[in-house]
Structures are given as structure tokens and as C-alpha cells.
């Protein structure tokens, strides 16, 4: 039972990291109908920024995360303005957006690799401390990951549901042209959306880096976020959260009780099964083919 609880918490903490990524991904997808293939790079930028804030400048974790969010949001907005906007303005096919995104991603990851080197870095000591809760030991970082995800996703929920800007984002997601007729500047909406997705990726990068290691290719895990998002229902934010927690918990249990060798196999099997029975994901609306 103790092991079970322990694994559940582990699963929720990795699920929370997936949720940050999946929501960032779903948010961009719901507004622009395309997969932002560059958000693996955003995650890497976030992880490295926080790592060096702590190791080089000795900043406390919350400050480091805050700065990582800022830097990553900046990078995300630059990618939007430099790589996506010119294509969107010309109404280029989504395939071009995808290629542009992959290019941006490769460029960023390789710059990080060249600048800082490809070695695996252990996140500083804070990560190993743990708290005891009724016999269950919870890693402090796991706890932080769950709390941070919960707080930031709730904040996003309020932003989208309760503010004027959030209403503008939702309108832009439904119908960009008509949103423009309402006086909404769709380019400003894009900057906010990409900034938010950058912030979420940064938090995910920090906690993923803390759980495993900080290295230039840690962004590969965003594949899991896409799977989670598709399981939950592509473009649906609540779906992304549910899919992520589900995936995180299932993966952890598979690793703990069967073998970690099967973990990724199971992830993809779940994806296939869900799509077989719920073609639009668990909580998704109907969709058409989109890249």
C-alpha cells in the first residue's frame, strides 16, 4: 500500500509535468490549429536557464524558475514573431508552419548544445530532500511540481475564463477573422498565447530536469505531452490535463510493477487504444485532419 501511494505520487508529479507541456501545446493548437513542434526547445531553454540561475548565480529555486519563465517566454515569442507570423500572414499551408517550427527547434537546441555542451547535469541538492506524509515519502521536487503545475494551470484557467484578454483569446481561437472585426489584435493574442506556452514549458523543463537531468535533448519528452494531449482530446485544455495525469500515473505503475522497459511501449499502446475507441480523445470535440 505504501509502495502504491508512493508510485501514485510519483505518477502524479510526472503527470503534472506532462500537463504543463500538454496544456501549452493544446493552447497553441486550439488557437492556431497547428502543432507547435518547437516547444521541446522551449522546455530545454527553461531547464538550462533555471539550472544556471541556481548553479552560477546561487539564486533560490522560485527566483530561478521565475527568471526561466521570463527567458523562455521571450524565446517562445521570438519564435512566433520570427518563424510563424510571416507564414501566417501569407496564409501558408500548415505543412510550412511545421517545417518552420522544426527548424526553429533544431536551431535552438543546437545553440544550447554548442554554448553549454551536451553533458548530463544533475540539478542542485534541493531535489533530493523529501517530506514524509503518513509513511509515504514524497520528494520535495515532486511536491513542488504538483503544486506549481496546479497553481499555474489554475491561473491560466482564470485568465482564459474570467478576463477580457482571455475572452479575446477564446474568440481568436474560434474565428480569427471575426475576432479582428471585434477590434481584437490577433498578433497581440499570438504573443500572449506563445508567451504563456513558453512559461508553461519553462516550468515543465525545470521539474523534468530536476527529476532526471538537465541536457540539451531533454525536450524529447514533449512527445509524451502530445500523446497525453491527443488522449485527452486534441485542443481541449481540460482534456490535456486529464490525459497527462492518466499517462503519468499509468507509466509509473508500469515501470514499478512490470518493467520500465515497457513504459514507452505502453504509452503508445494506450494512445492507439484510446484513438480506436474515442477517435476524438476522451474529452475532445470533433476534429478534422491537421498537422
Amino acid at each position: 500500500m505504501i509502495l502504491f501511494m508512493q508510485q501514485l505520487v510519483n505518477g502524479l508529479s510526472i503527470g503534472a509535468v506532462y500537463a504543463l507541456l500538454a496544456v501549452g501545446y493544446a493552447l497553441v493548437y486550439s488557437v492556431y490549429n497547428f502543432t507547435n513542434w518547437a516547444f521541446d526547445a522551449f522546455m530545454v531553454v527553461g531547464a538550462f536557464a533555471a539550472y544556471y540561475c541556481i548553479t552560477l548565480f546561487g539564486l533560490p529555486l522560485p527566483v530561478a524558475i521565475g527568471l526561466a519563465m521570463l527567458v523562455t517566454a521571450g524565446v517562445a515569442v521570438s519564435v512566433e514573431v520570427g518563424a510563424y507570423r510571416p507564414l501566417r500572414v501569407r496564409q501558408a499551408p500548415r505543412l510550412f508552419m511545421m517545417i518552420s517550427a522544426m527548424g526553429a527547434s533544431m536551431a535552438i537546441v543546437n545553440i544550447v548544445n554548442l554554448a553549454f555542451g551536451g553533458s548530463f547535469r544533475k540539478f542542485p541538492e534541493i531535489s533530493s530532500a523529501s517530506v514524509e506524509l503518513g509513511g509515504v515519502y514524497i520528494g520535495r521536487m515532486d511536491l513542488f511540481a504538483i503544486v506549481f503545475s496546479f497553481v499555474s494551470l489554475s491561473a491560466l484557467w482564470l485568465l482564459l475564463g474570467k478576463t477580457r484578454i482571455g475572452l479575446g483569446i477564446r474568440a481568436s481561437a474560434i474565428d480569427t477573422v471575426t475576432a479582428g472585426l471585434m477590434g481584437i489584435n490577433n498578433n497581440s493574442v499570438a504573443i500572449i498565447v506563445f508567451g504563456v506556452s513558453g512559461v508553461l514549458s519553462a516550468i515543465a523543463g525545470v521539474f523534468f530536469g530536476a527529476k532526471y537531468a538537465v541536457y540539451p535533448y531533454l525536450g524529447l519528452v514533449t512527445t509524451k505531452a502530445m500523446i497525453a494531449s491527443i488522449i485527452g482530446g486534441i485542443g481541449s485544455l481540460p482534456g490535456a490535463v486529464v490525459g497527462s495525469l492518466l499517462l503519468g500515473v499509468i507509466e509509473t505503475f508500469v515501470s514499478a510493477y512490470i518493467s520500465s522497459v515497457y513504459r514507452d511501449l505502453i504509452s503508445f499502446t494506450i494512445l492507439v487504444l484510446v484513438l480506436l475507441f474515442f477517435p476524438n480523445g476522451i474529452m475532445g470535440a470533433k476534429t478534422v485532419d491537421k498537422l
Partner: peptide, 26 residues
């Protein structure tokens, strides 16, 4: 201000939200 052909209501938003969007810039 244009009232577009085919109305282009934001179908999943409420009547009040649609109206609020009309005043977005105010």
C-alpha cells in the same frame, strides 16, 4: 464596423460574451 455575411456568431460563446467581444476595444 462590419456585420459580416452569414453573421459569424461565436457559436460556443454565450450571447453576453458575444456582445462583450463587440466592445473589446472599448
Amino acid at each position: 464596423t462590419l456585420v459580416p455575411e452569414g453573421r459569424r456568431i461565436f457559436a460556443s460563446l454565450s450571447v453576453q460574451e458575444n456582445l462583450a467581444l463587440g466592445a473589446y476595444a472599448c
